[in-house]
């Protein structure tokens, strides 16, 4: 097939770009995603993951069961920050940079 054909519609990534990463040693969907942005767009790889697996399969010695699906991410579908946020301003794990600075004898260490 023509190498300029788009595989990832969201980020407009072609076969050529995907094959290049495999040539460099990439073997998983996620390797390709990080370098090309394939699958990082609005659909979060729902359309392209199988197509990319087929490219990896064709270009490497890997069988389809050795090509893992992409790492799926939360949120499972997009959600607004406003909906995600709670009213709480209690932070247990999320900190600010200044929180981390400790003063000893009234001085920064």
């Amino acid at each position: 097939m023509d190498k300029s054909v788009i595989v990832c519609r969201c980020e407009e990534i072609s076969y050529e770009e995907i094959e290049e990463v495999i040539t460099q040693g990439g073997r998983t969907f996620d390797d390709i995603k990080r370098i090309t942005r394939c699958g990082m767009g609005a659909c979060q790889s729902k359309i392209c993951s199988k197509l990319v697996a087929e490219v990896i399969h064709k270009q490497t010695e890997l069988s389809m069961e050795q090509i893992y699906p992409p790492r799926f991410r939360m949120p499972i579908s997009p959600v607004s920050l406003e909906a995600l946020a709670t009213d709480s301003q209690q932070f247990s794990t999320v900190k600010s940079v200044l929180d981390e600075i400790e003063l000893t004898d009234g001085k920064v260490k």
Partner: peptide, 10 residues
């Protein structure tokens, strides 16, 4: 559904 790409399938 799965896709079947071809030139200009977008």
């Amino acid at each position: 559904e799965n896709a079947i790409p071809f030139p200009k399938w977008t």
